[in-house]
Simulated scan of single mutants.
Amino acid sequence: MEFLNLRWADLDPNFHLRHSVYYDLAAQERIAILDRYGINAAVMIDQHFGPVLFKEECVFKREIRLSSRIYIDTKVLKMKRDASFWVIQHSFIAETDTLHALLKVEGSWMDTIKRKLARPVPPIVLEGMENFPKTADFEYI
């Protein structure tokens, strides 16, 4: 568990985390996890694919302030068996285990040359997504 490094620039006029920062932090966390499982920028460029989002939403539960000690717990909530579609959930949690926000994204993989959904997904994607952490109530769809 790694706590977030929040910056003054991340705050809004009410001195809590700006709404758009949640999305930026979640995206950075997703990319870091994908990288751990071999799905990195170099592989995506070489094999001509990348992630694409269809939906992104956040439910804000409690304020996050500059001094807050928060970490993001990121896991796959749902996924097609071929990893061609997935829902990833990001829980913004305080060191006291208090949930501050729940952000979910629905996405797939795009062929960056054809500019269409990648079907089938490259083998490294299937392997990486199988290894990606899963929620307790994870389900294949």
Rank of each mutant, 00 (worst) to 15 (best):
L77S: 11
F92A: 06
W86H: 09
S91L: 15
M79I: 11
D73T: 02
D82Q: 07
F85W: 09
T98S: 14
I64A: 04
K75T: 07
H90I: 13
K61W: 02
S67Q: 14
W86G: 01
R62I: 00
K61G: 00
L66N: 02
Q89T: 10
A83I: 07
S84T: 12
F85E: 15
I88D: 06
S68M: 04
R69L: 11
I70E: 04
T96G: 00
V76Y: 05
E63R: 14
F60D: 01
Q89F: 02
K75A: 15
D82I: 06
I70V: 15
E95C: 04
F85S: 14
S68D: 12
V87M: 11
A83G: 04
V76G: 00
F85A: 15
V87Y: 01
K80Y: 08
L66T: 01
A94P: 06
T98V: 15
A101C: 09
S84H: 07
M79T: 04
T74C: 15
F92L: 07
S68I: 04
I93K: 06
S91C: 11
I64C: 05
I70C: 05
A94D: 15
V87R: 14
T98E: 15
S91I: 09
I88C: 11
S91H: 12
S68W: 08
R81M: 11
A94W: 03
K80E: 13
S68F: 09
S68H: 12
L66I: 02
S84P: 03
A101D: 09
T74E: 07
H90K: 10
H100C: 15
T98R: 12
D82V: 08
I72G: 05
S68P: 06
S84L: 09
V87K: 14
A83F: 00
H90V: 11
R69Y: 02
R62C: 00
R81I: 09
Y71W: 10
K80P: 00
A83E: 02
S68G: 07
K61R: 13
I64K: 14
Q89E: 15
R65Y: 08
I88W: 02
W86E: 03
D82S: 03
H100N: 12
Y71R: 14
R69K: 15
S84D: 11
L77M: 10
S84V: 09
F60R: 01
A94G: 15
I88S: 06
E63I: 04
S84C: 09
F85M: 13
F92Y: 12
L99H: 07
A101G: 13
E95T: 01
R65F: 10
D73L: 12
F85Y: 10
L77H: 08
I88H: 05
M79R: 07
T96N: 14
F60Q: 01
W86Q: 05
D97I: 01
L99P: 00
V87F: 01
R62V: 01
I70Q: 04
Q89G: 05
M79V: 09
T98H: 10
D97W: 02
V76H: 00
S91A: 14
H100W: 03
S67F: 08
L66C: 04
D73N: 12
I72W: 03
T74D: 02
S67Y: 08
I88A: 10
T96P: 00
A83P: 05
I64E: 05
S91N: 14
D97S: 12
K80A: 08
T96W: 05
K75S: 11
D73Q: 13
S91P: 00
L66V: 00
Q89D: 11
F60H: 13
F92K: 13
L99Q: 08
F92G: 08
